[in-house]
């Protein structure tokens, strides 16, 4: 395994934001994580995204970018950027339903853990990344994986994608095409 299994995503059009991401599989303590998250424990202030619906990095980039745009123009539908990212990944209109299907739930075993950082506080991103990774390793009982397209598409569950995205006849096993459909859903969300 690589030395550095977490990643920092960046957007040229939003230079102040850094997006910390790490991918965990075989997570054993989802119920505990969820209850701490609901309690508002600041060590759990991340977006926990169910890995089974994720196919590619492009999907994440597309959803996060949309959220940052909506944040800039004050058009977010939910309270925080983290919920908004989950909301934008999902096709459902109801925020709770999105969180149940695309966020963390007792049945999820693979988690993409993501945190939006607004780097005005002077901390260097490298330090911050190590700090966050340490917190996650302490609190998440699972195996950390390299966050890349290979991991995502391998861990994705196509039947879940078909069901949760309500694809019906438009579902296809051609991953590049499926990827395009999912990105379309994110980009057209809310219109």
């Amino acid at each position: 395994m690589s030395e550095k299994p977490s990643k920092v995503l960046e957007f040229e059009s939003f230079p102040n934001y850094k997006i910390f991401v790490a991918y965990f599989i075989n997570v054993q303590n989802t119920d505990e994580i969820k209850s701490e998250l609901l309690k508002g424990n600041t060590d759990y202030d991340f977006a926990f995204i169910n890995g089974e619906n994720l196919l590619s990095l492009e999907q994440i980039y597309s959803a996060v970018h949309k959220c940052l745009l909506d944040e800039r123009f004050n058009r977010k539908k939910s309270k925080t950027l983290h919920t908004e990212i989950i909301f934008n990944l999902a096709p459902q209109r109801n925020i709770m339903e999105c969180l149940n299907k695309f966020g963390i739930s007792s049945s999820s075993t693979d988690l993409l853990v993501l945190k939006v950082l607004n780097l005005e506080d002077g901390n260097s991103i490298q330090e911050k990344e190590q700090e966050l990774l340490a917190i996650l390793k302490k609190n998440i009982n699972g195996d950390i994986m390299e966050f890349d397209d290979a991991t995502l598409s391998e861990r994705a569950k196509l039947p879940s994608i078909k069901k949760n995205y309500k694809l019906g006849d438009t579902f296809t096993e051609d991953l590049s095409k499926l990827n395009r459909i999912l990105i379309g859903i994110t980009q057209l969300k809310g219109l």
Binding site: F11, S13, S56, V64, L175, S176, N179
Partner: peptide, 16 residues
């Protein structure tokens, strides 16, 4: 010449 959100060296799943 800039993609709005993908980094320059990223190769999309979508080969076309």
């Amino acid at each position: 010449t800039k993609h709005p959100y993908l980094p320059k060296n990223y190769k999309s799943l979508d080969l076309s």
